[in-house]
Structure formats: C-alpha cells, structure tokens
C-alpha cells in the first residue's frame, strides 16, 4: 500500500510538472504580454525601449529556458508577484481560498445531506413516482447552465423580489454574521443544485447495483428488517463507489465554483483564476491553475486509496493478463 501511494505521488508530481509547462506555454500564447502592458500604460516608451525591457525580463529567451528559470524559482518558493494585486502571489491566495472552502464546503454538506436520502429512497422504490420525480430533478440539476441559473436566481431573488444580495461576501461597512450568510445563499444554492443532481444519481445507481446483489436479497428473504437492510447493509456497500465519484467530482465542483463565483462577484479561487487569466496576471494564473490541478490530483488519489481501503477485493499492482 505504501509503495502504491508513493508511486502515485510520484506520478502526480510528473503530471504537475507537465501541467506547469503546458500552462506556462499556453499563457505565453495569450493576447498581449507584460511589455505590451507596460507600453500601453506608458506612452513614452519607444519600440527600442520595449526590446531592451524584453531582454531585461528575459522575454526574448526561448520558451523552455524561460520556463526552467520560472520552475527553479518556483521550487525555491518564489512564484512571483501578482500583477493585479501587486503582491506576492502566495500572499493573495489564502483569503480567496478560504472563501471558496466556505462556499464549496457548505454546498458539499447540503448536497450530501440531500443526495444520500433521496438517492437511497429512490433506489429502494425504483420506478415509483418518487423515483421518477427525483430522476427528473437530477437531470434538471445536471443539465442547467450554471451561469444562467445564477442569472435567473438573481432576477428572481434580487430584482423581482429583492430579498437577497446578488454579489459579494458582505455589505459595505460590514453586517456581521447574518449579512455574510445572506450573501452566501444564492451562490451556495447555485452550486448546490448541480451537485445534488449528480450525487443523487450516483447514490441511486450504486444502491440499485447493491440491491440487486444476492446477499441483500437473501437478507431480505430471511426477514431482516427492510429498512435496516437498505439503510445499513446496502448503503454501506453502495458508499464505496459513491465516495470515489464524490472525490472525483471535486474538480468539476471547482469549475462550477468558477462560474458561480464569477456570476456573484464572490472573491474565491474560481474568480481569482478567471480574473487572472482575463487580466493578463500571468504569475497568478499559473499558480492558481496549478493549484487547481493539484487539488484534483489529490482528490483522485484519495478516491483510489479510499476505494482500496473500503473494498478488499481491489488490488493495485496491475496484473498481466493473458494476451494473444
């Protein structure tokens, strides 16, 4: 097991390294470059000045060379300064990260609290009216464009019936806990509608799979209490795939958070990523994107470990099959 984890960590490091180069290269291909930005902000600079500046900042060197010097600095803990925030990148991130953790954590707790009972109940009464309604709502949840859902919620709850704030984390001048909660309602709702839909579907599918198994049928046939069999024995086994999928969904959730945060001007990681990409804040974009990749990789790794932990039948050595 330890060997497996070490191997996976090694692989993740390779993915991160490759990803950092890919993003570095891509960001270099985005419109404008730092010197262009300087020129546009200072009309006195001549093309000759620009060329000299490029040399000073090393922007005329080949891509790989520039990347390597960035990587060396990054490994030393220096990720550069944010152009938009005019501070070291790492100093900016914590506040935004904390806001996202609040948003996603809240949404996650609500989603799971709703999804597990709904999915289990629907699976236990497959093809009942309840099941059909749950199914319909789940499909609606995963099919709705998040940005449009956000717009609709704003129109209904901030414009037509103005009871909730449409943007930010708090009113100007501060409003205490209640104010902060009010600001969270719409973003959390937006994010939660999507994840409830997908989680419920996973729980339902996993439960149906488990309920088909012989040992569950045997338990039911032997007269074990139906509720107990479903909510204890079956659910415990159904949780194995669910845990995996939920961990894997963290990446998707982050994407959802990007849109949600942007729509509600909520200062979290998603908005930070978006703003830095759109605002030519290269250092910030690079670091935040890498951070997002690392989170997804870590979630995948945790999912696989949890899977192995929960299901003793799984082996992670890779077996050589019979091949023609």
């Amino acid at each position: 097991m330890t060997r497996y984890i070490i191997q996976r960590l090694g692989e993740s490091a390779v993915v991160i390294a490759l990803m950092s180069f890919l993003i570095y290269a891509l960001i270099g291909l985005m419109p404008g470059d730092p010197i262009d930005l300087m020129i546009s902000s200072d009309p006195r600079l001549t093309p000759a000045d620009a060329a000299r500046l490029r040399a000073v900042y090393g922007l005329d060197r080949p891509l790989l060379e520039r990347y390597l010097s960035w990587a060396v600095a990054a490994l030393g803990g220096d990720f550069g300064n944010s152009r938009l925030h005019v501070r070291p990148v790492l100093d900016v991130m914590p506040t935004f990260l904390l806001n996202t953790v609040k948003l996603m954590g809240l949404s996650f707790v609500i989603s799971v609290t709703v999804a597990i009972p709904a999915g289990v109940y629907a699976a236990a009464r497959q093809n009942s009216r309840f099941d059909h309604i749950v199914n319909l709502l789940c499909f609606a949840g995963i099919s709705v464009p998040v940005f449009w859902l956000a717009l609709m919620l704003i129109i209904v709850f901030s414009v037509m019936i103005p009871i909730l704030p449409a943007s930010g984390v708090g009113s100007i001048g501060g409003g205490g806990v209640w104010d902060a909660v009010r600001h969270l309602v719409l973003p959390v709702t937006t994010l939660t509608i999507f994840s409830i839909g997908s989680y419920t579907r996973f729980v339902r599918a996993a439960m149906i799979e488990v309920l088909r198994q012989d040992y569950i049928r045997t338990a039911l046939a032997k007269g074990a209490g139906r509720a107990r069999v479903i909510w204890v024995h079956a659910l415990r086994n159904a949780m194995i795939p669910v845990v995996t999928v939920v961990a894997l969904s963290f990446g998707t959730l982050l994407s959802g958070a990007l849109i949600t945060e942007t729509m509600f001007a909520y200062p979290g990681m998603g908005k930070l990523i978006y703003d830095s990409i759109m605002g030519n804040d290269y250092n910030m974009a690079l670091v935040t994107l890498l951070f997002a990749t690392a989170v997804t990789l870590a979630a995948n790794l945790l999912a696989d470990i949890a899977y192995a932990w929960l299901d003793p039948r799984i082996s992670y050595g890779g077996s050589e099959g019979v091949r023609p």
Binding site: I277, V295, N300
Partner: peptide
C-alpha cells in the same frame, strides 16, 4: 491510461478558458 487520468485530473473549465483565450496570431 495515464494520459487519460492526467487529462481527467485537469481543471477542465479554467483550462478551456486559457485555451479559448490563446491568441491565434501567436501560433
């Protein structure tokens, strides 16, 4: 399969935003 896992692990939407923002004249 490692390549597939790697792509799955990418933060999809941010990456698409970067890809969509790439300045085609630069390539």
């Amino acid at each position: 399969m490692r390549l597939t896992d790697g792509v799955i692990a990418l933060p999809l939407l941010p990456l698409l935003i970067v890809l969509a923002a790439v300045d085609l004249t630069k390539i």
